[in-house]
Amino acid sequence: MKLLILDLDGTVRRPKSGAKFINNPHDQEIIPEAQRAIAHYKSQCWIIVGATNQGGVAAGKNS
């Protein structure tokens, strides 16, 4: 088994609005280069997991 763990924020996804943090599920987009890399690993049968440290929570954006 091969496992790829990816940091989501700023590595795989970014806010569409240009804001510092994603505050709404509709305000996110995948970074095209990340999408291509993920597709490559998926084609090689890797298990892919996304992780986040929830930087918005640390900045007081917890609602």
Rank of each mutant, 00 (worst) to 15 (best):
M1I: 14
L3F: 07
L3H: 07
L3A: 14
L4E: 13
L4A: 15
L6E: 12
L6S: 11
D7M: 14
D7L: 14
D7H: 14
L8R: 11
D9V: 04
G10L: 06
G10Q: 08
G10T: 06
G10K: 03
T11F: 11
V12N: 08
V12K: 07
R13C: 15
R13G: 09
R13A: 15
R14E: 13
P15I: 05
K16S: 00
K16M: 05
K16T: 01
K16I: 10
S17N: 03
G18F: 04
G18D: 05
K20D: 04
F21D: 00
F21Q: 00
I22L: 03
N24F: 01
N24S: 10
N24G: 01
N24K: 11
P25R: 06
H26N: 09
D27N: 09
D27I: 01
D27A: 04
D27M: 04
Q28G: 02
Q28I: 03
Q28K: 06
Q28Y: 01
Q28N: 03
E29H: 02
E29I: 02
I30T: 11
I31A: 03
I31V: 08
P32G: 05
P32A: 06
E33C: 04
A34S: 15
R36G: 04
A37T: 13
A37W: 05
A37D: 04
A37V: 11
A37E: 11
I38D: 04
I38K: 04
I38T: 06
I38S: 04
A39C: 03
H40I: 12
Y41R: 05
Q44E: 14
C45V: 05
C45N: 15
C45E: 14
C45A: 12
W46P: 01
I47L: 12
I47E: 13
I48W: 07
I48D: 08
I48F: 10
V49Y: 02
V49F: 05
G50D: 02
G50Y: 10
G50M: 05
T52C: 06
N53K: 11
G56M: 09
G56Q: 07
G56A: 12
V57S: 11
A59W: 08
G60W: 12
G60P: 10
G60D: 10
G60C: 11
G60S: 10
K61F: 15
K61T: 02
K61W: 10
N62H: 15
N62T: 12
